[in-house]
């Protein structure tokens, strides 16, 4: 370190002292394609997730000088220095990429040829930003979000070296529940599935908007974490979250044959009847694709409009009469309205 002339001690994962420059919030530029590029690294948030054990160069491996030229895109499938404890091999996200390649989100078809609009299919960074731990403090039956010294003290009584206890505890307790708040998961899917151009290219319905109209969507909007988001229904049961299959695949969780079982998993509607899944979950009102739903919607809209505006007009006219009780378009020479003439008419002898 002395040879490089860096006086400031660098954080654990930053042996090269990259934060000497990247700690500045304004380190940025507009790139050749007009996109804003920010090179700031929030060290506090970086240290709040599993990647904190990695060195910068584990991912940004092409950087070999300071200051450096524009770095290449990071490949998430490359091996990093972390040894995966269960297999004692260097860690890589390759297995996740392999799973993704068999899912509906693969850019290649079954024969290995690019699908139409293959550039639309997601890579790692399209869905993932830097993961952050969402640890739980579990102590004497009490569960609280976050980590406390008390919760981890029992681990540290044996695992004293380094940050092993903190890393392990935070990793495991984060995995005891969703690592993302459900609304964040929905917003990730919405980046593509709510984009009108994207949906048009791939002939897809607006499933995100229709999901938000459901009971599930509204509960999540109100802050529930116990309500299913996209992944809970669309991931093949027992597989990792990257295996989402098209509806027409026999093993898909949302295939008609499997839909009932998906709703009745132990975490959800375990005791419900098979007909629970008999409704159309994502109702879109496209006239060509779903004419019945479209015309039913039109009927109810028309019915509501007629009823509402009829009564609003009635109320308005009634109020108008209260404002001008003696107003009439037609009056006789004495200034009486037909209504008054009838009321004041003397009975004939």
């Amino acid at each position: 370190m002395a040879l490089t002339g860096f006086p400031e001690p660098a954080p654990a994962g930053d042996e090269l002292n990259c934060v000497l420059c990247h700690k500045h919030r304004g380190l940025s530029r507009i790139d050749e394609n007009g996109k804003f590029r920010l090179f700031y690294l929030n060290q506090e948030l970086f240290d709040a997730g599993p990647h904190r054990r990695n060195k910068c160069k584990d991912c940004h491996s092409d950087i070999d000088r300071i200051p450096h030229k524009p770095a290449k895109k990071v490949t998430c499938t490359q091996q990093c220095h972390i040894v995966e404890p269960s297999g004692n091999v260097k860690f890589s996200h390759q297995s996740i990429a392999d799973t993704l390649a068999t899912s509906v989100h693969s850019s290649l078809d079954a024969e290995g040829n690019p699908k139409p609009h293959h550039e639309d299919y997601p890579g790692c960074k399209d869905c993932h930003d830097q993961p952050l731990y969402r640890p739980l403090s579990v102590y004497k039956g009490e569960v609280k979000p976050g980590i406390t010294a008390r919760a981890i003290s029992r681990c540290k009584s044996c695992h004293t070296s380094g940050d092993f206890a903190e890393d392990f505890y935070e990793h495991v307790t984060s995995r005891l529940h969703k690592t993302r708040f459900p609304m964040e998961t929905i917003e990730v899917c919405a980046k593509c599935h709510q984009d009108p151009d994207f949906r048009e290219r791939h002939e897809l319905d607006d499933v995100v908007t229709t999901y938000k109209q459901t009971f599930h969507g509204k509960l999540i909007a109100l802050g529930s974490e116990r309500t299913p988001d996209c992944l809970d229904c669309h991931v093949v049961p027992g597989e990792n979250t990257h295996l989402i299959e098209a509806q027409d695949q026999p093993t898909s969780s949302v295939n008609k044959a499997n839909l009932s079982a998906t709703c009745r998993t132990s975490d959800c509607h375990e005791k419900a009847g098979a007909m629970l899944a008999g409704f159309q979950t994502h109702v879109t009102y496209d006239r060509d694709k779903y004419p019945l739903q479209f015309y039913m919607l039109m009927f109810f809209k028309a019915l509501m409009a007629v009823v509402l505006y009829f009564f609003l007009t009635l109320i308005f006219l009634e109020l108008l009469r209260r404002l001008f009780p003696r107003f009439a378009f037609f009056k006789d020479k004495e200034g009486n309205t037909p209504h008054h003439r009838i009321r004041n008419k003397k009975p004939e002898a």
């Binding site: 948030l45 640890p135 739980l136």
Partner: peptide, 24 residues
């Protein structure tokens, strides 16, 4: 964008394609 960690809410600018969190 909003990231809810349960014990902390992070609200930050959203930059398309950015991996690392900004924080503020």
């Amino acid at each position: 964008s909003r990231t809810d960690l349960g014990y902390k809410l992070i609200e930050q600018p959203y930059i398309e394609g950015r991996f690392h969190h900004i924080g503020f």
